Simulated scan of single mutants.
Amino acid sequence: MGQSTPTARLPVLIIEDEPILRLDAIDMVERAGFEAVETTSVEDAIGILERRTDIRIVFIDLDMPRGVRGIEIAAAIRNRWPPIEIVLTAASFAKADLDLPVRAEFYAKPILHAEVVAAMRRMAAHATG
């Protein structure tokens, strides 16, 4: 009996410090057919992006602890890794109040999974095609 090679799933880096919201994001990403790569901190996220050149989508919570400004991190990701697509989410921001990096999309919490998954699929098509 031969072994079949599973098709590679595009990894999505999830940066979310709240455990329940992180688990929800992981579930959403995996149900959509992506590989979830998770972290709770910006520092760890940078390390993952330095090691994992296959990551093309980042899902980041703008409401990060310890004074870290998620929008600045998103801009830094855009500048350092231009091919990466960015999905931003927050409960305490409105899209109109944000200066979004190029090719970043914002979704207010609570997010609608169908909207975010549709965005990730569009981004994946752009990233791989």
Rank of each mutant, 00 (worst) to 15 (best):
M28G: 03
E30S: 04
T40M: 11
T39A: 02
E35V: 01
D24C: 10
E43V: 09
E38D: 15
E18V: 13
D24T: 13
P19C: 01
I20M: 13
R22H: 09
A36E: 02
D44Y: 06
G47M: 07
E43G: 04
P19Q: 05
L23H: 09
A32V: 08
M28A: 11
E30P: 08
A45H: 02
V29Q: 00
E43S: 10
D44M: 12
A32H: 06
I46A: 11
T40D: 11
R22T: 00
R22L: 11
S41Q: 04
R22N: 09
E35M: 14
V42D: 14
A32T: 07
I26L: 14
V29M: 11
I46M: 13
G47I: 05
T40Q: 13
E30M: 07
P19T: 02
S41K: 06
V29G: 01
G33S: 07
A25T: 02
G33K: 07
A25M: 12
I26H: 09
V37G: 00
A36D: 01
D27L: 13
E35W: 04
A45V: 01
A25K: 07
M28I: 11
I46V: 15
D44Q: 15
R31V: 02
M28N: 00
A25S: 15
D44P: 05
V42F: 02
A32N: 06
A45W: 03
A36M: 05
